[in-house]
């Protein structure tokens, strides 16, 4: 069996925070508390969970933008974090990122051509004609015209800017693309166009996506597998069908039940009340159902992620 493209093993990220209050001192913020997952070639793995649960911190660790406190990340079996990790250039060819707000992520003083050619030059492509060919092919792939290459970001609509953001992420032909809320700043109709584009590109180029989204209908539509995070931990992991058809953890069920969906609101479709059968769990308690906000300054109690059906895992309090 070939190793997965990306392996994250027991990732922890803690932030030292200057303590407030009378005593001063330092406190530790437990942002990510033991996340493990594999990402396969061509797969879309989504991370869902509420604000502050550690989604972006996990993604930033993979991008090398956030140092891991503990744990390891491997890419094609090789260390991808820490001292033995790759240099910036190597990393850039492996993983890239598409941001939520395309406007903030583009330099307003650079034309599209300039912002797309810089990474190519940096990676040793000197020939002007090759650069321009690659830029034009890239723009065509994301649905823009060659003429638009010489325009500035403010001359584009929100949807077009997100296309530019995608082009910039893909210009070095990375294998993995991190999508952090890629469509949440966009209008419904434009959102649909970008979702279609992302799925087309994934198929055409065999891309692996690590997507972060709070919109569960988008997650269901796009993902192969889903990680549900709460308080820096994965509380449930499974294939998209397992998560959406037979969610096991109460927190996952709460998240799904909270989605305002027109069909459900108008009782034209029923939300499945079915939950996964958990015979092997044997009366063990779930960790946190999400009804109480977590305290990020407290180390989470011991617990384990238990696989109860092939590929379907749920977090339970440690066995006594």
């Amino acid at each position: 069996m070939t190793a997965p493209l990306l392996q994250v093993d027991d990732l922890h990220v803690r932030f030292p925070i200057a303590g407030g209050g009378l005593l001063g001192g330092r406190r530790t913020l437990y942002a990510v508390n033991g996340i493990s997952f594999d990402l396969a070639k061509g797969e879309c793995l989504s991370i869902v969970g509420e604000s502050g649960c550690g989604k972006s911190t996990t993604a930033l660790s993979i991008l090398g933008l956030q140092e891991a406190t503990e744990g390891s990340i491997r890419y094609r079996g090789q260390p991808f974090s820490g001292a033995g990790g790759p240099g910036r250039m190597q990393r850039a060819r492996a993983v890239q990122m598409v941001f939520q707000d395309p406007y903030a992520s583009l330099n307003p003083r650079q034309t599209v051509r300039t912002s797309l050619s810089a990474p190519l030059r940096l990676h040793g492509i000197k020939s002007a004609s090759e650069i321009s060919d690659r830029i034009e092919a890239m723009l065509a792939d994301v649905g823009l015209t060659p003429e638009q290459a010489d325009r500035y970001p403010h001359e584009f609509s929100g949807g077009q800017r997100q296309r530019i953001g995608i082009a910039r992420a893909l210009i070095l032909e990375p294998e993995i693309v991190v999508l952090d809320e890629p469509v949440s700043a966009l209008d419904v109709s434009i959102r649909a166009q970008i979702i279609n584009l992302l799925l087309d590109l994934q198929e055409k180029r065999g891309l692996s996506y690590l997507m972060i989204s709070h919109d569960l209908s988008v997650v269901e539509h796009m993902s192969d597998r889903v990680l549900v995070m709460f308080a820096g931990q994965v509380v449930e992991e499974g294939g998209w069908r397992q998560i959406f058809e037979t969610p096991a953890h109460p927190y996952t069920r709460r998240l799904i039940a909270a989605i305002p969906d027109p069909d459900v609101a108008l009782r034209r479709s029923e939300r499945s009340e079915r939950s996964a059968d958990l015979p092997m769990l044997d009366g063990r308690a779930f960790v946190a159902d999400g009804s109480v906000a977590p305290d990020v300054f407290v180390r989470p109690a011991p617990s384990e992620l238990v696989e109860f059906a092939p590929g379907h895992k749920v977090r339970l309090a440690a066995a006594h």
Partner: peptide, 8 residues
């Protein structure tokens, strides 16, 4: 244009 929960 709206992805619908359960449609997939």
């Amino acid at each position: 244009a709206l992805p619908r929960l359960g449609s997939r």
